[in-house]
């Protein structure tokens, strides 16, 4: 502006200032409008966001590559430092798991025998699509992650996302190449669950803290710390029985620690659960051929 001189600057300056002020107010109003729109009309905003994620996915995938490499090196150094402790831990775990293996074999035989008795169809098997987390830094107000798989891989909105050991979240928005995962800890997350012991239904409500709350638990249930929480399958978008977490506190608010460490997410699996296949469990219906990908 310093280069402008003389009359034109003298006339233009107040006009420019006015324009500037107008632009400021206009952009403020636009921002507030967008915030309100994202509260009122979610589908439109989700669509726009999915398109945005699709556009940026190649960039993020490429940039995330070296980050993965660095993480691998850190993990490798970590392994070396703690190899002794880890070895001890794994040995005790191995002994314990061998016992469980026995139990599982016996149960499997029992289960097969009982299924034959009931003439039920074979167990429902899910297929998975594996994707890598390419973005997760949503700041302190959201708990989401961006996965590099989308509709081209068969991912659909609402499908369950599984990490190492259990439930991580569900697909909230899906584009062609990328999908946004709403983690179980996010403020907007509501997950129908049940207590593994007793099968009492409840809703797991995220509140952005690391430990989501267990709400609407049926009156007869006696929640205690250490109890395991699994998905109840209500809503039909994914099966019952996926491990979700374990109750860590019951004073006042019941809080649940997720089984998966949500602070470190890398490769996640999206569960392809086809609701129509539930028919196969109906013994009277002819069992449709099960496809596995």
């Amino acid at each position: 502006m310093a280069r402008r001189s003389g009359r034109s600057a003298w006339v233009a300056a107040p006009f420019r200032a006015l324009l500037q002020r107008f632009a400021f107010l206009l952009l403020l109003a636009a921002s507030v409008g967008l915030i309100l729109l994202s509260r009122v009309d979610r589908p439109v905003v989700e669509r726009v966001r999915a398109v945005g994620a699709d556009i940026i996915e190649p960039v993020l995938s490429v940039v995330a590559q070296p980050v993965t490499a660095v993480n691998a090196v850190i993990g490798w150094a970590d392994d070396i430092f703690f190899v002794h402790d880890e070895n001890f831990r794994l040995r005790t775990e191995n002994a314990r798991l061998l016992q469980w293996q026995e139990v599982a074999r016996r149960l499997e035989q029992d289960n097969a025998a009982l299924r034959r008795l009931l003439s039920a169809g074979p167990d429902l098997s899910q297929t998975y699509v594996t994707g890598r987390v390419i973005a997760d830094g949503g700041g302190s107000f959201v708990r989401t992650a961006l996965l590099n798989v989308g509709t081209k891989d068969g991912v659909k909105k609402g499908q369950a996302v599984i990490g190492e050991g259990g439930y991580v979240g569900r697909v909230a928005e899906v584009g062609v190449r990328a999908a946004r995962i709403l983690l179980v800890t996010d403020l907007n997350s509501r997950l129908p669950v049940m207590l593994q012991e007793g099968g009492h239904r409840a809703v797991l409500t995220g509140d952005n803290s690391p430990l989501p709350r267990l709400e609407y638990l049926t009156g007869a249930a006696r929640p205690a710390t250490g109890m395991h929480i699994v998905t109840s399958g209500d809503g039909g978008q994914f099966p019952a029985g996926i491990p979700v977490g374990e109750i860590v506190s019951t004073d006042g608010v019941i809080r649940v620690r997720p089984v998966v460490d949500l602070g470190r997410l890398d490769f996640l699996r999206v569960m392809q659960f086809d609701e129509t296949r539930i028919d196969a469990e109906d013994p009277s219906a002819p069992a449709p051929p099960l496809k596995s990908r």
Binding site: S31, I35, S38, V45, V48, R49, G139, F141, L146, L182
Partner: peptide, 10 residues
């Protein structure tokens, strides 16, 4: 806003 998943416009 688009990439972080928070409310659009914030």
């Amino acid at each position: 806003d688009l990439l972080s998943g928070g409310p659009l416009g914030l």
